[in-house]
Design a protein around this nucleic acid. Structure first.
Length: 172
DNA sequence: CCCTGATTCGC
DNA sequence: GCGAATCAGG
């Protein structure tokens, strides 16, 4: 891949929007994050205006399982908001007896508010592959929480996967 | 461990 | 100019 005007333009745009180099590389395709960083550097727009940004948003994920959550917590990460958990559980029980697709939406959007919502290329062996959102929409991505030792899904989603609808009760 | 950007240096 | 390897850090 070479840096066409269009690609450079998109690079500038995404970089200005605050996306990380790896995310930009993912969107452009055909280049590594190093390539993006290198290009940014050569274009002399490394500053990005303000802050160090990146990796500060929605950190500290805490899957329901895995030994996460240390007691002390001296690293000072931002805690994820725990939003209306009871509402989610209620909606879950209600929706599960109906159909599959709506259930997926309910689960991903309401019951499990915590997620990193990673793009496909950012997934690795330790990130939850539970799909988030509508596959036909541009914001479709994956949960991305730490899966711990249990498998392809995080603590929340592993309890939902492969189970008959009648066996599903509540998360947590 | 995961990730981030910065820098170097052979191509 | 390009980007993999490396560095320094959260």
């Amino acid at each position: 891949m070479n840096w066409t005007d269009e690609r450079v333009e998109q690079l500038k745009k995404l970089w200005a929007e605050g996306l990380s180099a790896s995310q930009i590389a993912a969107q452009l395709g055909g280049v590594s994050r190093n390539a993006v960083i290198g290009k940014v550097h050569r274009l002399k727009l490394s500053g990005r205006g303000k802050t160090t940004s990146t990796q500060t948003r929605s950190k500290k994920i805490n899957t329901g399982s895995s030994g996460a959550s240390r007691g002390g917590g001296s690293s000072g990460h931002v805690a994820t908001r725990v939003v209306s958990r009871s509402i989610g559980a209620t909606a879950l029980q209600t929706e599960y007896s109906t159909e599959l697709v709506p259930v997926m939406k309910t689960v991903t959007d309401v019951v499990v508010p915590i997620s990193r919502r990673l793009e496909l290329v950012q997934l690795n062996e330790r990130t939850c592959k539970w799909p988030m959102g509508d596959p036909l929409q541009p914001d479709f991505n994956f949960c991305g929480n730490d899966v711990g030792e249990s498998g392809p899904y995080c603590g929340y989603h592993s309890r939902l996967a492969y189970q008959p609808a009648s066996d599903r009760r509540r998360v947590r």
